[in-house]
Nucleic acid binder design. Sequence first.
DNA 1: ATGAAAGCGCTAACAG
DNA 2: CTGTTAGCGCTTTCAT
Lengths: 347, 347
Amino acid sequence: MALPPSDPPPPPASTETRGAVTIHQVAALAGVSLMTVSRALNEPHRVAGPTLERVRAAIHRTGYVPNLAAGGLRSLKSRLVVALIPTTTGQLFAGMIGALSEALRERGIQLMIGESGYGAHREDDLLRAAIGRRPEGIFLTGVMHSEEGRRALQSCGIPIVETWDETEAPLDMLVGVSQVQLGSEVCRYLHGKGHRHLALISGDDPRAARRREGFLQTAAMLGLPPPVTHMLTAPTTHAQGRQAIDSLLRQAPPRIDAVFCSSDMLALGVLTQCRVMGVAVPGDLAVVGFGDLDFASSVVPALTTVRIDGDAIGRIAAAMLATRAEGLPVAKRRVEVGFTVVSRETA
Amino acid sequence: MALPPSDPPPPPASTETRGAVTIHQVAALAGVSLMTVSRALNEPHRVAGPTLERVRAAIHRTGYVPNLAAGGLRSLKSRLVVALIPTTTGQLFAGMIGALSEALRERGIQLMIGESGYGAHREDDLLRAAIGRRPEGIFLTGVMHSEEGRRALQSCGIPIVETWDETEAPLDMLVGVSQVQLGSEVCRYLHGKGHRHLALISGDDPRAARRREGFLQTAAMLGLPPPVTHMLTAPTTHAQGRQAIDSLLRQAPPRIDAVFCSSDMLALGVLTQCRVMGVAVPGDLAVVGFGDLDFASSVVPALTTVRIDGDAIGRIAAAMLATRAEGLPVAKRRVEVGFTVVSRETA
DNA sequence: ATGAAAGCGCTAACAG
DNA sequence: CTGTTAGCGCTTTCAT
């Protein structure tokens, strides 16, 4: 098993015992104590040049990869942040995840993603799993509503960031977007364009609900007739959009002249159905989407939509979490990220 | 700080020391040894009823969540699988991730997702991070090409599943799809519909490259003129599709009469541009996409595309990994998942 | 049915 | 600059 140390240097694998190489084996091979190996990895400047070389060679030969769970256990630093996202479907959160992941990596922190799905019952499981890994931060897509979840998060002492939404009482930190104001702004936009008979096609996720709220409030405030709303279950699809606008357009007069969709995919379905039905956009019907997904600027007619800077949310959250991971306090624990109504051709 | 033990039972949080509740504190509160708490959690049937009750009450009061890193360290069971995916963008992998996550959860295994992005240099980092957590399995989206990555994975002794692609020499297990055959099949399909002047609009990811390969080979075999191919950088977009078909249609005769796009989003862009240019689909140009994303069946004209059962890939991989995690061998270490050419209106 | 001792792989704290 | 000792929070193994 133990080959004479004279075997050719490069070929790795063979010095290893089944299971995994440990720091002991590297130390033995390099002829140093295991602490020297640990230092060579974590603070190389504190190790003498030649020693460092030998250790590095041993690491290379053995293919040693440090056990982060063990290191984290001892140092109480897991170098891990867990992000909980509702679903990997949909491009909406893709940019944010990318930015979060990248910004954390730059600071030497790993991102672990947990998919909560849309099932409420498993959110609890997921939370326990997340906390059980003792991450140095938890990123929440949206705000935590369940009382049980709030308690668990609050009492575990891990820094938390809630995002994408607004709340009176953040658990800890917040990178928020005023969805209510967003809905309100879209309503004003449509009103400003001369539309009076508004409609809403909306998924049933919490954030869409708040946009709806703002939209309806503002419509009332502007003295418009109450917008007719069509509810759908998330995640919303192209087919749902087609079917929803079809049903909306067949309703009794007054005929709607503008619709705000809770996702760009929904809006795309609306556009498709309008074309099929010979309804001119924006002539007969103005359409506004949400998300500014890649296709929004490229479809014909180009989709007017609302853009939220997901990358910024990811970056800001990463910075907050990283700061807290270093034991420092975060000055602005509550940050507001804006939105932009991107005016194109459909409204 | 230490309130008298007479404070009301329900209110949790306050018995905890800063940092996190440990099993010791639960044991002390319940008046048992820490082993009993451990058993109450992992093999409750081996603990006497009344004792179990007391322990559970203590767990509830303290809000104790076991440290999985510590447990995993000792038991050499992390109950963790790491999945490496190129990007969370795009719905293509969403179903697969969902199915994988769900199937693992049913078996008591957590899924940790790592985003590799399209940068090659960080794949190495990501791999070290993954191995460092000592997962019981690693799920790869695609096959591992880099020699360095292959060595690292091979020597770490962790069960690996490669997916979505084909390879002569799988690292360990494979849930594959013959992308070459897929491309070939699409070519035959188009040929069967009477098209002779084929084109390809293709992203530059490895799997798209193999589909292209199969497509071109078969075109040659069928005696067709060499399909003109337009290359793009992944991830492919709607705008790229528009621009690509525009350039393809302006090329010198013979004019192309069918195009295979490496993604449905690309195909959607092609459809849009054709409408703008007054090119009839499928009359003047047949269009085939890839992925069968939600909108494919719902756009007008409905998109002919190719469907791969991502859910099946996720489920099968989960089963393999779970089996290996239990120390059992997997009989069929190489599984082939099929594909379907979904014939709709565009071709 | 419960407890005591040992140790998983690593790093903090202190020698030398 | 390098090594020794102790112990992170938990589970294994062996007692009782």
